[in-house]
């Protein structure tokens, strides 16, 4: 057994096991943590397959951003997952049937899929196996596809402007901290000496 094969089995066994735990664990926060474990192991599998760019993007985007966001949402929303999970056993057979059909279909497609021979030759950027794919991507993304890259940037800018303009509220009478004002406060305007007669209170 080669080292690569060994790691393949390690990564895939942990990935499948933690995927199971995502749906099986009682605590939703644990579910999200297991989801992160799935992502990390999937990234390892990508790395073994030679797709190192995809692997690192998976870590950066999914683990770093999406999963953490998930974690926040599950912690803040306080959804009653126990009641959501009621009747899971009842629906399990249907789920299993759907899953098996899906698996069979995937196997059928995967088994019979052939690329048309002329396609890979005709594509705009043929795959060069000599360079690794981060380098290959770097060679085209800022040169050949700079236009699309900038276009995608403009789309994201619009999305950001849109998200802000549709949700940002400007409240009129919100009290904000003014540090200069705070530090300039003198004792005279902040405190007041009141003479209180004993037994009467303020």
């Amino acid at each position: 057994m080669t080292l690569a094969l060994f790691f393949f089995y390690v990564f895939s066994i942990i990935a499948v096991a933690s995927a199971l735990m995502v749906i099986a664990s009682r605590n939703p926060v644990h579910s999200v943590l297991f989801l992160i474990l799935v992502f990390v192991n999937a990234a390892g599998l990508f790395m073994l397959a030679g797709a190192e760019f995809l692997a690192l993007i998976l870590i950066v985007v999914y683990v770093g951003a999406v999963a953490v966001l998930f974690l926040f949402v599950t912690m803040m929303l306080d959804v009653d997952f126990a009641s959501l999970r009621q009747g899971m056993l009842q629906y399990a057979p249907v789920g299993v049937v759907v899953g098996v059909i899906l698996l069979l279909e995937l196997l059928l497609v995967g088994g019979s899929f052939v690329m048309a021979p002329q396609v890979s030759g005709a594509s705009a950027v043929p795959i060069d196996h000599a360079v690794d794919n981060t380098r290959a991507l770097g060679q085209v993304i800022y040169t050949r596809y700079v236009f699309l890259f900038q276009g995608a940037g403009a789309v994201l800018l619009v999305a950001m402007v849109g998200a802000i303009v549709l949700t940002l509220q400007h409240k009129a009478n919100v009290k904000r901290q003014n540090i200069a004002h705070q530090t300039q406060r003198t004792r005279a305007e902040a405190t007041e000496l009141v003479k209180v007669k004993s037994g009467q209170g303020v």
Binding site: Y145, F147, L148, G151, A152, A154, V155, V158, A159, V161, G162, V165, L166
Partner: peptide, 23 residues
Amino acid sequence: LMSLYVSLELQSLALYVVAALKR
């Protein structure tokens, strides 16, 4: 086809937001 899609999305996304601007 790629620049077609990117530009179409740029246009559409801005239009969706403009439609709902009076929120």
